[in-house]
Amino acid sequence: MTGQDYVEVQGLTVDFDGFKANEEVDVTFLQGRIHFLIGPNGAGKTTLVDALTGLVKGTGRARYGNLDLLSLKSHQISRAGVGRTFQTATVFEELSVLQNLDIAGGVHRKAWGMLRARKGIPDYVQEAMETVGLADLRDRPAGVLAHGQKQWLEIGMLLVQDAKVMFLDETVAGMSHEERDETGELLRRIAPSRTIVVIEHDMDFVRNHADFVTVLHAGKVLAEGSVADIQGNPRVQEVYLGRNIEEVSHE
């Protein structure tokens, strides 16, 4: 069941009063493939995701199924099954892990049902909670979770939403090695039925978990291919000023 679903971006341009944060970007994200977006700061990685999730206005085309993501509003994009996380984990700090996940599943509930208290735990919430490994912390307020756990909780919320396309913005930034490995395994587990796009600076993480890499530079696609292709690409090395990718990409 891999490979039927995809997001196809063609000629995406994001223009901030003359400054082109993205210019004529062509890229295709395929289901079942963990796709990394890398590039120096200011390369337009987050802007690209912002444009595809309705946060900033972009021109061009971004086809997902029979929808054009660029013409939809944020909540419509979310309802169409395209979810995202943010650089700073934004979980609802005062609500418990369970409440956070439950809210993510609330879109299709009837209005009247919203006025009742939750009874038991919906199956899909329980599954998501176990998938991201937070079942034991169910009643903990999200605000007290460790940084990595908050990121997992966000991914869990995307699972509850049943997001078929997930944009993850610097998910492993600030995580320990163990947490990074666990995050990688988590992505591997959920990837086959989803289209996963990760913005990342950490080259070890990219090397270990990327199926496909797109390098952005100055708002444009500089190169794309496997990790080995990218590392051997002279243009990529040139952009990184001949230095090691690791050095430059650290913030």
Binding site: T53, S74, H75, S78, R79, G83, R84, F86, T90, V91, F92, E93, E94, L95, Q99, N100, D102, I103, A104, G106, V107, M114, M157, Q161
Partner: peptide, 17 residues
Amino acid sequence: ELLVATRDAEERVRFLG
């Protein structure tokens, strides 16, 4: 719960649909 969530992170709620 949703109201508290909206109070604390309105944009996030929007991205939940």
